[in-house]
Design a protein around this nucleic acid. Structure first.
Lengths: 206, 206, 206, 206
DNA sequence: TATGAATGAGCGTTCATTCAT
DNA sequence: AATGAATGAACGCTCATTCAT
């Protein structure tokens, strides 16, 4: 029997004050991201999220309708972070090489600032719970990359090849690199980053 | 509490007849692979594995000691398949370009013959249940690639760069490509494969 | 849906040859007694009984309709053993003291020859699965004791007191003694037996 | 696999308010005692304990880590009750006969106030799940009886015989009596009690 | 006749979610 | 608004029993 009084879910917008979320909301998202990246969505009990966030188990449900809503919020927030780094301040007038560098550095910054976010997106890529808004964010990033590649190809600065193929190779190569550095204890050194950048660029250049 | 009487687990070797496993053993492994790839290890209930395999829930435990033993068997079998395709018949005397082609074609064959296996390995790479034998298989593949790259570098046929970085970029790029083709409905066409092969080789060549 | 062909259950009588049961029947009963005494009826899986008896799991069901039928057979056999030792060769013409000695020695013989049987009866006394035939055996032993006590009281050789009270005190005392010796590593020495016999007699004598 | 987050188990001490446990804690212990006495530890499913206690199945695990922890709590509580009745207010300066009476009356009180507890201890005496604290309680009672007997023997008020033998005979006799009264519908009447007390004393007196 | 692979109901236990406080 | 005790469906797994061989 559904309850017949209205449960007032704190909407994310309402909870914001001057653009940032309430402390608890924030703590829950951070705890969930950590744990989902570490042990998988299905492998993470909600009470553990609550414990890590330092809130009561019931409190999570004041901010998120369900576990699935929580993981989607985590997903969105990671994608949003990534999107911001990749799509903002794109040097539209620059050469393809410079645009690629912008993309590459943006990805590095994301993986460095938010390693759990990186792992989370990687391992939860295919999940069925990704909702419309999450999908939209992903599409934006892809569309941005697509346009960049097409324009560069039109200018003859990037190899002729299906843009999506090139994009997936480049994203994949970057992902492979980060996963490798994460397995070892060495971090992502500047040298590794710029060497790899040059290697990956070789896939794109004409 | 584990059962007190001896459960005669069909060992893979014993259960074989002329080199292939009993029908049920096979069906369980196949069902588990499908489901783990589709919905994650933690997201897959054993009863669902049983149903998909067309056996009773209890039957799985005549073949696998536990869920963890099952996922390891799946892991091993996938890695073994991959290892066979990558490490057998390596053209040791050939040029680096030809060796790379062998590797690339092997990976394509693996991803085509066993797409769930590919996804499973991808998404369960970091899991804690990977036992010693599974790890060994992974190490073999990595060591094989490492040697190939080093030798080719010594001959001046591959760029000077940390071999592991190159390997992770190449594996990553391939993975990115396959994941992209899997998301769309188009399969891995011969054209895509050979175009991408050439692109990825550009990362390696001097 | 019940099977519509007759399952021919080997009746205990049919299975006998010259008064003793088939080897398998025997092995199953012995294994069950051991295990039920050691780990309780409910704590003993049928497959473990089968393993201990050296027969297939299905074989037990050719001799016993169910686990409950098996435990009843075990119960009956133990009670029958006890009954034989207590009720046969009772020195009806002897003094109460000598009759008591006969009873005491019979109990000692039972506990010594068949310690698992003793423990089994002790720990499974109150169980609901005791069927009519089992109950009958128990009643016989009690009735025998009852008569003995009443007659002895009539002759003034045993204290006036509710016979059943005396009987339960005596049985209980014996049981307490045997359980104590079983807990320690010392067996039931002749000295302990005869000292205790004298002590217990003191409860009965006028 | 035990849960990864901290389950705040209500410790017996914490859960107490003015010396008695929370209502649910109490209800679970009582239900478990009843059922274990009636149908054995192994024969009692946890869901049945929950139902009898009037709580949800999961609720038990907020109070007890596992079924084994529950049975130990039941065991301890029964032993503690018995210990209190037997070891407190022992008339140390009195005659052996009066000390025996104190013990006898204590046992009667225990069996009357807590008949399920009596049966439970009887039938679960030898079980492997008895933990250190449970064992300690049992040892205290035994040691108390031992000392009493030895001192009385030294004063010539109790027969010379191995104290443990006497103790096991006396405990056993009492147990036999109670089991008998429980099988019939008659309770433990004052007459039966005092008659039996006198009979049992005859085993001890010089 | 004897087997043991197979089954599924039911076990002990966990955890997403609710709701009285 | 926040809590955490309480819940019961569902988990991983066991085992009494069946039945094809």
């Amino acid at each position: 029997m559904p309850s017949d009084y209205t449960i007032k879910l704190r909407s994310p917008v309402k909870a914001e004050t001057n653009g940032h979320l309430s402390e608890k909301h924030e703590a829950i998202l951070a705890a969930a991201l950590d744990l989902f990246a570490e042990r998988t969505y299905d492998g993470t009990p909600m009470p553990l999220v609550a414990e890590r966030a330092g809130v009561g188990a019931g409190t999570i449900y004041r901010y998120f309708r369900s576990k699935e809503a929580l993981v989607n919020a985590v997903y969105r927030r990671c994608m949003e972070h990534q999107r911001r780094l990749l799509l903002e301040d794109v040097p539209v007038e620059a050469t393809a090489r410079e645009q690629f560098r912008h993309w590459w550095r943006g990805m590095c910054q994301f993986a460095t600032e938010n390693p759990q976010g990186f792992v989370f997106l990687e391992t939860h890529h295919h999940e069925s719970y990704r909702d419309a808004e999450s999908q939209e964010l992903l599409d934006q990033v892809r569309a941005g990359a697509h346009t960049l590649v097409e324009n560069a190809q039109a200018r003859g600065e990037v190899r002729q090849a299906t843009p999506d193929v090139l994009i997936s190779l480049v994203f994949g190569a970057f992902t492979g690199l980060v996963k490798w550095t994460m397995e070892g204890d060495c971090g992502l050194t500047e040298e590794t980053i710029s060497d790899a950048e040059e290697r990956v660029w070789q896939m794109l250049r004409p």
